[in-house]
Amino acid sequence: MIGYWGMGTLALLAAVFALAFARPWGLRLPKWLLIIPAAIGSVLLSLWGFTYFVMQYLLAVGRVQSAPMYATQDASPMAVWGYFWYALFLIWGISLGAAAYYAEKVRKQNKANHFTK
């Protein structure tokens, strides 16, 4: 339960944090304060989303079994919503990583252009 709340909170913070890459106030932040947390958040969010699909695959091929207390929940038709939510975590992670990569690339390009003028 702590993991769900923790990753949900991290996802919301990452969404707000991602605005720093698109808003002018983000340029005032030091480079390391943008890039390092974004890279860490990207890895964590992507892994959280990806591991759900790995778990579903392992359940489908019979390599693992649901714990008895979760077997009914995993067999419920509502379990399909997991694909939506965990795909969202995966997309958030990948997009945050892309934003961090692009921001670093733009900052390097701006720095190089500044020195050549």
Results as ranks from 00 to 15, higher is better:
Thr51Lys: 11
Val61Cys: 01
Ala112Phe: 11
Phe17Asp: 06
Lys117Pro: 14
Leu27Tyr: 08
Ile40Asn: 02
Ala100Gly: 07
Ala75Tyr: 02
Phe89His: 06
Ala71Met: 02
Leu33Lys: 03
Lys108Glu: 13
Ser46Glu: 06
Pro37Arg: 06
Tyr4Asn: 07
Asp74Lys: 00
Lys111Gly: 13
Gly62Asp: 01
Ser42Arg: 09
Asn110Ala: 10
Tyr70Val: 06
Leu47Gln: 03
Val64Tyr: 05
Gly6Thr: 00
Asn110Gln: 14
His114Thr: 13
Tyr86Glu: 10
Ala71Tyr: 06
Phe89Gly: 08
Leu29Cys: 03
Thr9Arg: 05
Lys108Pro: 00
Lys111Gln: 15
Gly8Ser: 11
Pro37Leu: 03
Phe50His: 07
Arg23Asn: 02
Tyr102Trp: 15
Tyr57Val: 02
Ile40Gln: 01
Ile36Gln: 14
Ile2Pro: 00
Ala87Glu: 02
Ser95Arg: 10
Gln109Cys: 12
Trp32Gln: 13
Gln56Ser: 11
Ala22Ile: 04
Ile94Gly: 05
Ala87His: 07
Thr51Gly: 09
Trp25Gln: 07
Leu27His: 11
Asp74Asn: 00
Gly62Phe: 02
Ala20Ser: 04
Tyr86Lys: 12
Ala103Glu: 15
Leu34Tyr: 02
Tyr52Gly: 05
Leu33Ala: 13
Ala39Met: 11
Met1Lys: 01
Ile36Met: 13
Leu27Met: 11
Gly49Trp: 00
Ala103Leu: 13
Val106Trp: 10
Ala112Glu: 14
Ala87Val: 05
Pro30Arg: 05
Gln109His: 15
Met1Ala: 06
Trp81Arg: 12
Ala14Lys: 01
Val64Phe: 03
Leu12Glu: 03
Gln73Val: 12
Ser42Cys: 13
Lys31Thr: 15
Lys117Trp: 13
Arg23Trp: 10
Tyr70Ser: 09
Ala99Ser: 14
Ala71Pro: 00
Gln73Arg: 11
Gln56Phe: 01
Phe89Met: 04
Ile35Asn: 05
Leu29Trp: 04
Leu34Trp: 07
